[in-house]
Design a protein around this nucleic acid. Sequence first.
DNA 1: TTAATAGTGTCTCTAAGACATTATTCC
DNA 2: GGAATAATGTCTTAGAGACACTATTAA
Lengths: 257, 257
Amino acid sequence: MDIKKLESSYFDDKIYVKNVAVDNVIFGYHDKELKVLLQRPTSFPKWTVTGGYVRKTESIEEAADNIACMRTGLKNLFLKQFRSFGNPSRTKGERDIVKKFFESIGMELPADSWILDYSVSIAFYTLTEFSRVTVQKAPFDEAIDWWPVSQLPPMMFDHALIIAEALKALQHHIYHYPIGYELLPEKFTLPEIHSLYETILDKTLDNRNFTRKLMSTGIVKKLDETRSIGAHRSPYLYKFDKRKYDTALKNGIFLAF
Amino acid sequence: MDIKKLESSYFDDKIYVKNVAVDNVIFGYHDKELKVLLQRPTSFPKWTVTGGYVRKTESIEEAADNIACMRTGLKNLFLKQFRSFGNPSRTKGERDIVKKFFESIGMELPADSWILDYSVSIAFYTLTEFSRVTVQKAPFDEAIDWWPVSQLPPMMFDHALIIAEALKALQHHIYHYPIGYELLPEKFTLPEIHSLYETILDKTLDNRNFTRKLMSTGIVKKLDETRSIGAHRSPYLYKFDKRKYDTALKNGIFLAF
DNA sequence: TTAATAGTGTCTCTAAGACATTATTCC
DNA sequence: GGAATAATGTCTTAGAGACACTATTAA
């Protein structure tokens, strides 16, 4: 896909749906840290969630998936729509920044362009193990980086709110659906998945109770292998039972922690 | 508000946000039945959920509230955004109907009007006790009526899906938040709120266990009054403890049924 | 043997779920 | 007293929550 062509065609009302943006909060997990992938377009003083617009030939889910793919290089990541944001003041006060951005890349935005107008943002979040990701800078990004969810840089528009809501939705989700397939390597240890849950929920979970409950769901199965981790007892490896995992994703489960 | 003026101004790109619609699934409860308020615009062969567009001066929540208010005459009803819908095919195949509708009310829609184009629908649901409602027909509605959720008429676009998703969201919601304040009279009996929960969840709940769990949440309080219901034991009246109810709405509760 | 981490078992207590009888009202 | 509906208590059982010791590894 020619990204340059794509982005400049945002002007084109025939290709893109006007007044609708898709924002995708890409969460990455690695080494007991939950991070968010943020971008800072050229000449922007603040950061934004990864996002884009919707082509008239695609669904909003496809648009969100494309955004995730463009930035991470990975296809078919877990994607969840959690809320839409729309009010007259969400981009107010920062329209000059947007205007300057387009000027800085050599495009003059008409004063009545829908890009500067009221826009509804349909927000998704995406999960991925960030060591698998090769971050893809878009042509007009000055920077793109992972930021710890607990230490965000100054955010544009209402994007700090969008991230906060995404995190709340994720924490709610984790109680009702299995999680981890996209966030852990194919084979993982109990301490690893335990840390994942602790990180996302931002609280400590008793390891014995956690194991008991996790195993009772049947979504993971123990392998007959261990991983060597140096001068310590070798933890067993586990795998997701994809069949049961997908069933649980569809029907929901209940994990009280 | 001049509804006629309002609706005809849907054409006006300066007033309305293009390509964005708000659909509001208005659920009404009465006498152990859960119904949905549906409208059938002039010359439409099928029914639609109540909906409208977003003015550039208002938030999507305000737009949804206005829709509910226009149709029910009631302000500040409980409102919950549950999902947005957007894909190229959701209105396909029924654009001719829309075109005919506008012709039938004496307005010719330009072929390239955004009304016929890709549109994203931000969907909310609203709860109300439907005996309190005086249904307001919009000027271009041929009919507006309550339909039982289990026996819907032929629906336009993807509105049958939207209603199904709204119901799922409501059933999920009822496990995590208090419900009933908008659906019951100020004073109500235990059998009444019991029936409400049974109706929404579409299953029978043991009355003793239901009472125990409901009371343990503290969101309702028993009054020192009874209601006379003829040749039967008079049930006690209850009231919501609005303070605790609102706290529970904010923080969530868990009701396992 | 030591240091670090993994793995596991038991007790208590709360509350979910199943179940049936008594109380009230008006005829 | 009969018919209809409201109100309520108890037992069983599952599982949540709290808690601490043993096992393994490599230096």
